[in-house]
Design a binder for these strands. Structure first.
Length: 196
DNA sequence: CGGGTGATAGACT
DNA sequence: GTCTATCACCCGG
């Protein structure tokens, strides 16, 4: 398993959010290699998107990485959970794609250990906070690049049937709350539960 | 020290 | 599936 080429990340953000579906997230650890296949993403288009942390090109210590080259890791903490993003857009354009769910591919035993032994398989990685816990992804990877080991994206076949919906958890973002910028694989049981 | 940042587990129906 | 109580850190002032 090898990291994807850097040029992969140089595409329109809404395209990238869809092309990421099917790709592998790989985390190589001493205890084993954890792999998840991306089945759900959301695009955040900074300058024109009230739901984005970088709305209006808001630049802070936290959003800074989104102004850098695409392919960097943007992570942030939501109370007890870490959420993980892929920086998108050219330098100076603060876009990102949130990875909302993956399908467990390898390292299931370790994932179960990370998530609690009684956790059902479908609940292992079917949410943005769940998958970071299962794959042991922490804020230490803020500013890392997704082409570098030990945490990287590896190429796999793209998904064939992509569905869209409004994004989740942003209902106070006015008009932006209705943009259909959530993408997921049709009928995949590891997609997070939809909350209308 | 206040504001900003939504997801999760578990109980219930 | 739906409901709801609970969860913590970083930052700027």
């Amino acid at each position: 398993m090898q990291p994807i080429e850097e040029s992969f990340f140089h595409m329109d953000t809404l395209q990238l959010a869809q092309h990421l579906l099917g790709q592998f997230v790989v985390h190589e650890l001493p205890q084993g290699t954890l792999i998840g296949r991306i089945v759900e993403t959301e695009a955040y288009l900074g300058e024109c998107d009230r739901a984005a942390h970088s709305f209006n090109n808001r630049r802070s210590k936290r959003t800074e990485i989104m102004f850098h080259e695409p392919g960097h890791v943007y992570s942030y903490t939501m109370h007890t959970h870490t959420l993980i993003n892929v920086v998108s857009g050219p330098v100076g354009v603060p876009h990102a794609v949130l990875i909302r769910a993956v399908e467990p591919v390898a390292g299931l035993e370790l994932m179960r250990k990370n998530r609690g032994s009684s956790m059902k398989e479908t609940h292992l990685t079917n949410g943005p906070g769940k998958l970071t816990e299962a794959l042991q992804i922490t804020n230490e990877y803020y500013g890392h690049h997704w082409t570098k080991k030990p945490l990287y994206i590896a190429r796999n076949e793209r998904v064939e049937q992509i569905e869209t919906s409004p994004r989740i958890g942003i209902k106070n973002s006015g008009e932006a709350a209705r943009y259909p910028w959530r993408f997921f694989e049709k009928d995949n049981r590891f997609v997070s539960p939809y909350r209308p």
